[in-house]
Design a protein around this nucleic acid. Structure first.
Lengths: 66, 66
DNA sequence: AAGATATGTAAAGCAAACATGACTTTTTGA
DNA sequence: TCAAAAAGTCATGTTTGCTTTACATATCTT
């Protein structure tokens, strides 16, 4: 699962801490997701979609082509 | 998190077991998600979107309006 | 009535998604 | 240059997604 969080954050000049607060998760969680340590839960992905005002698919991409 | 899995299944005349196989999860997992016991992971939501040929938002709905 | 099929549910266990706290490294700006 | 801010990382703990096994119930056919 790839994601564009870092880019979307940069476009808005947000820090990981600011995004974390907008999503009501910890800064470490945002960092871990950005660096690919784990995938967000579905509810968190929905929150991100709401925060960025775009569909989930525009933020997260399934890299499993299978 | 609400979902339309039961309806989408019915439209296709699929059993929970058939959907489970298409998603490569257990039948109990499909049942638990349908009955709201827990939310699917993001990768599993992507799989469902691929199986049904529609965006994640057309299958799962965030009911938190907050 | 009896068997087959579909669904619901429960318990136990594992792995992944989070949390908190603390520390190090990198980037930034005055 | 140097300090502050941002980002990265590690350890530890809790919660939740998901598994397997097992059993109960409902419906449908024969």
């Amino acid at each position: 699962m790839k994601n564009r969080l870092k880019v979307l954050r940069a476009e808005r000049n947000w820090t990981q801490a600011q995004l974390a607060e907008a999503l009501s998760v910890s800064r470490q969680t945002v960092n871990a997701i950005e660096t690919g340590k784990f995938d967000p839960s579905l509810p968190l992905a929905f929150k991100a979609a709401r925060v960025f005002g775009m569909p989930i698919e525009a933020i997260f991409q399934d890299e499993q082509e299978q």
